[in-house]
Nucleic acid binder design. Structure first.
Lengths: 108, 108
DNA sequence: ACACTATGTTACTAATCACTCACATAGTAG
DNA sequence: CTACTATGTGAGTGATTAGTAACATAGTGT
């Protein structure tokens, strides 16, 4: 694995770990229904505004969301809808996990 | 967003952030070609064995990989191949990012 | 100009993570 | 049994991250 590969993995890891936080995941899910302003996002994910603002900054920085100003409000939306697709795969992983847990339970 | 939702987002975040590290991403990519033992993985991703062992523990814990013992060796493989698919989407995000960076460059 | 609202930022603390080194364990081969 | 190999784990350190409170900024309406 050369230095070039490492750079690319680092970039990809940035995107994935941006998505790898409960609040940010909730934000992504919420934005799947359409663009939203910070205050509505904060209400929906049940967290403080400044905290949500931070998380949005992380997502923006990773390129997962984009922003647009509308008067006083800053409107956020998903930069590409495929982000929602890979949640399906994540659910698949969780299903495998759950199945294995069930098998272990049987063994007791 | 109720407590149940939060639990599920936390689980999903666990899977995503398990994938959100350059070395672990390289491991996932490598396992895409087929199962591998720890020592070969360590050689391939160019990191120390104990460190790789740790990262594999994280992936295992998240349910991203599974393990199988073969004599002295512990063989790891992807628990579900769809994990490779969502890399495509990550690449899409990076493309959007690159495009925006190019646009910004034009403006200078 | 003033007060008000939405957002972002600074500074700080607590928590988590990554990495390394040294050691422990399990299996293999002589 | 002994030496060796592959893997995993505890302890420690430095780096990164999450969350909060207080403040700064930008736009709106009177």
């Amino acid at each position: 694995m050369n230095a070039e590969d490492k750079r690319i993995y680092k970039l990809k890891a940035e995107v994935l770990s941006a998505a790898g936080h409960p609040i940010r995941l909730a934000i992504i899910d919420f934005l799947g229904d359409g663009e939203q302003c910070v205050c509505d996002i904060a209400d929906h994910v049940d967290a403080q505004r400044s905290n949500v603002s931070r998380h949005l900054g992380v997502l923006l920085n990773a390129g997962v969301v984009k922003q647009r100003k509308d008067g006083l409000k800053m409107i956020y939306s998903l930069s590409t809808p495929c982000i929602l697709n890979f949640m399906k795969c994540v659910e698949g992983v969780l299903q495998v996990r759950a199945k294995e847990a069930a098998v272990l339970l049987e063994m007791l």
